[in-house]
């Protein structure tokens, strides 16, 4: 039995409505940002005379150049280091058996559902003692720890899906375990690694509570979301268009990457979710 025309029409109407619902709040803040304060914006705020002046004002007043730079440094380091570490842990859990492997993997799994909110209090006081509060390290180290949990789970799933015969053959040829990883498996792992990097970069870029607690004291180390939070608190009552422009600046890098790599993002989040 094939679907009737009416069914099809209903399907696409419903899907379109929900897709618009998902996009609209994002567009609304973009529209608002394209206005200036003197426009006295209300309601749907279609920008008939788009102006970039709010962006310019937000960029200079909120010092978002610094914020975006900090976010980029932190997210890039966290992404690269956790990808390398997860490659190792995933390789071990996915292709080797050793005493306590199931138990230990369970410990890593815990890190995925675990509310990291519960770790910020000691992180603050411990980092104060180490003297790394208000440095990039205070954001980088804990986020590597959190990302490795998901990364281990994700890369293990990849390594388990590779044909064991491939690894066996390389081992018979006398390749060391490191040789097997680098020469045989790594070339195939690129899509899985790219997905992992995209997700870790996004999560790290968007992170807020850690930045609020660990780098609030140093304006030059504040990440873009933290800068936005402070900027909004100071400016919103006076000029919401500037806050909107700042919001667009903070979200834009991720949204642009997402549009190009959407398959990777969605695959990672769905597969990660279902297998978990």
């Amino acid at each position: 039995m094939t679907a009737t025309r009416v069914e099809r029409a209903v399907t696409y109407t419903v899907l379109t409505l929900f897709a618009i619902g998902a996009i609209y709040p994002v567009l609304s803040i973009l529209f608002l940002a394209l206005h200036t304060k003197s426009d006295l914006v209300t309601g749907f705020a279609w920008p008939t005379d788009p102006s970039m002046s709010s962006f310019r004002a937000a960029w200079t007043e909120g010092d978002f150049g610094t914020g975006l730079k900090s976010s980029f440094i932190v997210a890039a380091v966290v992404t690269v280091v956790s990808a390398v570490l997860s490659l190792g842990t995933g390789y071990a859990f996915g292709t080797m058996r050793f005493r306590g492997d199931r138990w230990l993997f369970g410990v890593f799994l815990l890190g995925i559902i675990f509310p990291y909110e519960a770790t910020v209090i000691p992180l603050y006081y411990d980092f104060q003692d180490f003297g790394i509060l208000n440095t990039y390290w205070s954001l980088i180290l804990p986020q590597i720890g959190q990302s490795v949990a998901f990364g281990t789970f994700w890369m293990r799933a990849f390594f388990r899906s590779t044909p064991p015969a491939l690894v066996e053959a390389a081992r018979m040829d006398g390749a060391s375990s490191f040789g097997v990883l680098v020469r045989v498996l790594l070339p195939q792992a690129r899509p899985a690694l790219l997905t992992l990097c995209a997700l870790v970069f996004t999560y790290t870029w968007n992170e807020f509570l850690l930045a609020l607690v660990l780098v609030s004291g140093s304006p030059s180390k504040q990440t873009a979301p933290l800068g936005l939070s402070f900027f909004a608190g100071a400016v919103r009552a006076g000029d919401p268009t500037k806050v909107a422009a700042a919001s667009v600046l903070v979200a834009a890098p991720i949204v642009i990457v997402y549009i190009f790599l959407q398959r990777h993002f969605i695959r990672g989040m769905l597969a990660g979710a279902v297998k978990g």
């Binding site: 803040i29 968007n206 807020f208 919001s247 903070v250 989040m269």
Partner: peptide
Amino acid sequence: ALFLPQMIAGVV
């Protein structure tokens, strides 16, 4: 489109 909200920072 439906997945877009997942990508946006909570602050935004």
